[in-house]
Amino acid sequence: ETTLRLGSVNGTDSPNQVAAEKLNELLSEKLPEYSIDIFPSGQLGGERDMIESVQMGTLDMVITATTPLANFVPSLNVGELLYLIQDYDHADAVYEGEIGQQWLEDCSNAGMKGLAFTEVGFRQLCYNNKPIETLADLSGMKLRVMENDMHVNGWKTLGCDAVTMGWADAYAGVQQGTIDAVEVPYSLAYANSVYDVCKYISETNHIYTAQCMLISDAAWNGMSEEDQAVFQECATEACAYAKKYARESTEDFKNKMVEKGVTIVEVDLDEFREAIKPLYDQYQAEYGEQIAAIQALAK
């Protein structure tokens, strides 16, 4: 009888929660000696510290965005390039194919077991002033981004001033005008009431934010090989289930935000995709092969 502590920074109606609950449900059928104790909403800390806790074995499991995970598993970083992942099909081909499998295996170099990927979806641009439809509208905009080189340099390539600040500061900042915009997927935008401080959301679909389910080496190695196989199967199924939920609920969250008075703006994606190319040149030396392999999977 083992209870595993699982942490996530996202709230109780996020895909991560769905994945964790589904995993618990599957385990109770297939591997009843294991159960999951879920700590959502960052109760056990931020993503960085939870990953570290899994490394130390003080936390058994985490579901985290791949963005902070890339500080521990460098090969994951390539997935953070703007406009590299084209659409859902492309994302599945990458994260559920050989490349994704390799990324999960790379996690063991960082002293963790990567189980499966799920997602919170594509990121969108949320702001106040005037509708942003073209690249020119974006010029000089002060945008809060996550602490990641690919994100920072990507937005600089598109002509923005990328600012890294904590979420609470950013939320107050976009309201008071310290910054012009934030960028989050629809589900997180809704969960964080971005509609209260932003009038517009441009559907830029610039980054696909995958979530990775990880388990500590200590917890993993404590299982027999048969149990490991069953556990892996449950984790894969739970993550796939959560991914399906993420895609279905995205429309939902989008509609709810429109009801709250947010205007959704369409953008000329081809123009953005063209403008981002210099970014790929910048990372050619380090990630060239990976970029090519991922691009080859796009239809």
Partner: peptide
């Protein structure tokens, strides 16, 4: 001591 050990397996984001 243990924290430093895991610190060998991560770099700061910026």
């Amino acid at each position: 001591i243990m924290l430093i050990k895991v610190g060998f397996r991560a770099t700061s984001p910026s």
